[in-house]
Design a protein around this nucleic acid. Structure first.
Lengths: 107, 107
DNA sequence: ATTAAGGTTCTCAATAATGAGAACTCCATA
DNA sequence: TATGGAGTTCTCATTATTGAGAACCTTAAT
């Protein structure tokens, strides 16, 4: 599935080493984390439903390469409309929240 | 701000009268509700922050007409990247969840 | 009655996301 | 070792979202 979904120890290390303290980097790191989380959630939903990428693709009227793209932790183009299509196909709905900016805790 | 943000009584009435029981309509009704909720949240966040559309637009590098579009309950093109830009400008972050499909309760 | 601020609606060009197919890898297993 | 299923990566055409400006409506203040 992924390429950038570290174990939590490894990601904490990387965060401290390369990111902490630089606002621009913290921002883009944050973005990447969100993207990776979405990818992971889609993967988890699909596999829990016992579907292949091809099967999920058919349900929402696209191809397996598109599903693969959505499950790539590096993919940066997630849209709400696609998330809604995925959710609908798996009997879920998408919930969007604006929550207070994360205070990243390291160790 | 809005055009389709009913009071809860009115929306329950409309739902019963025109939508309940028709799966295709329930789906598109659901979509519209989600869109309207996002519009309302953006409006609420902006006004709580004491910003005009122009001011928020400047913060994220766009124009007031774009912000107005986002706050239109009928707007159907919300993207994750735009929501993240809004969130960042208002010291929030976007949380995405896949939750069980809503069982719509009417009255 | 003018003026200006805030907001809305409309266009259209520019940018970004999606659909789709091909070619590829990695594993089973026949 | 070959065949096929599952997944990945690449490309490019199509479609959808965004940026931007203009015109317009209200409302409040001058």
């Amino acid at each position: 599935m992924a390429k950038k979904t570290f174990s939590s120890k490894a990601s904490a290390f990387l965060y401290k080493r390369y990111v902490a303290g630089d606002p621009a980097r913290e921002q883009s790191y944050e973005e990447e984390v969100i993207n990776a989380e979405i990818a992971r959630k889609i993967y988890a939903l699909r596999t829990k439903a016992g579907l292949t990428q091809q099967e999920l693709a058919s349900r929402i009227g696209t191809t397996k390469s598109a599903i693969c793209r959505l499950e790539d932790a590096d993919y940066d183009g997630h849209s709400l409309s696609m998330l809604k299509r995925i959710a609908e196909a798996l009997d879920k709905r998408v919930q969007i929240r604006f929550v207070p900016a994360k205070k990243l805790r390291v160790a």
